[in-house]
Design a protein around this nucleic acid. Structure first.
Lengths: 197, 197
DNA sequence: ACAATATTTTTCCAATCGGAAAATTTCCTT
DNA sequence: AAGGAAATTTTCCGATTGGAAAAATATTGT
């Protein structure tokens, strides 16, 4: 073997990283090919650093692996205590009352969480206090656990969500929730902070 | 289908982003070509989305622009644009089957989310496949929507969660879910990536 | 151990990228 | 406005990628 090789190829590392992502998910090349729309051979070669994927293919592959494209390049670091772990039992929430809502923060003792999950109850009411939208940096995810909820997002038509429906949005945009109908509603809200965590 | 605020030509957006980075620095194509070792024409085409750069070229270009490769993809605006907004209705999830679970990612079309919410169904079964824990960087939050679930976290005693209970943990630690009892269980899982990615 | 199956790698060629140089457009300077 | 220089886009073509299918390797079942 006289041939080869040059200095350490960056794309070989990159390939290993992709392979790792795939194996983490216990997927075969065929499976990822299916999900991404790429050919099996293409993924195989990319993982071994034989070829250098184009932006288009990287993009497809990211979707196939269900990761953000950025995740390919980011070295991961933990901002949160390794191994941290907490359980919240149905009853024992810490109650927080806001003007419009009653919230229960789920893991109040745990700091530096990347997400803040809260259970909320929305009282049945005809009239909503429209005075002020809530705004805060980050993203927000809401699922209706019970009842019917109307979500008002600034600049958009109100969205009516029934039990099981969910919504995901930029929480910097003014928003407001209200129970629709006669019953109280129960929601789960998860917030992620603005940038990075 | 989930509604997402737009997602047109990905590489055209990407090209504009690169061009912006160059202009921010007041550099000409020739200058970036010099710094990166790429041809002027190549950069020109890439900036206009005429071609799709390979990983190798992207890598070179990043060096030339003196940015981290991740910066190409990180900066907000690529996919999760300010004001982004999506609704997922109870039925229309995108189904994904894993060896152990059946889950449905909630907003598959929306990229760069700070959180990844998924609905999952755990089949009633007596025996769990213990072979391998799942591990991935980031944090994870799980609520039991229906049924009883046992969560196995590596190095800890199994945790039994009933409907309404939830758990929050470092997903780098091996973990595994199983339905307990005779009924199928339904869970909501929200993942947050490692750090910013 | 063997066969059957599943998964990955290799091969081959069409499609696309990437670079040098020419053509075009933009931006001065007078 | 016109001429000239700088910057960008287009053209042309060799180099590399990406896909289909075959070959090789790994895994599973009996």
């Amino acid at each position: 073997m006289t041939e080869v090789t040059e200095a350490p190829k960056p794309r070989a590392d990159f390939g290993r990283r992709i392979r790792q992502l795939r194996r983490d998910r216990d997927w075969t090349l065929a499976e990822v090919a299916e999900r991404s729309g790429l050919a099996i051979s293409t993924i195989s070669k990319a993982e071994r650093g034989v070829i250098s994927l184009t932006y288009d293919r990287l993009s497809q592959l990211a979707r196939g692996l269900e990761v953000d494209l950025a995740a390919f390049f980011n070295a991961e670091g933990l901002s949160f205590e390794p191994g941290a772990f907490a359980v919240a039992r149905k009853g024992d929430f810490k109650r927080q009352e806001t003007q419009n809502y009653v919230y229960e923060m789920l893991f109040p003792d745990m700091w530096n969480k990347a997400m803040t999950p809260m259970m909320g109850s929305l009282k049945a009411r005809e009239l909503v206090d429209f005075e002020d939208f809530v705004r805060h940096p980050g993203q927000e995810f809401l699922v209706v656990m019970d009842g019917v909820v109307t979500v008002f997002v600034e600049g958009r038509a109100p969205v009516r969500l029934e039990t099981g429906d969910s919504i995901y949005f930029d929480s910097a945009v003014g928003h407001l929730y209200a129970s629709d109908g006669e019953r109280d509603a129960r929601i789960l809200v998860v917030c992620a902070p603005g940038s990075g965590g």
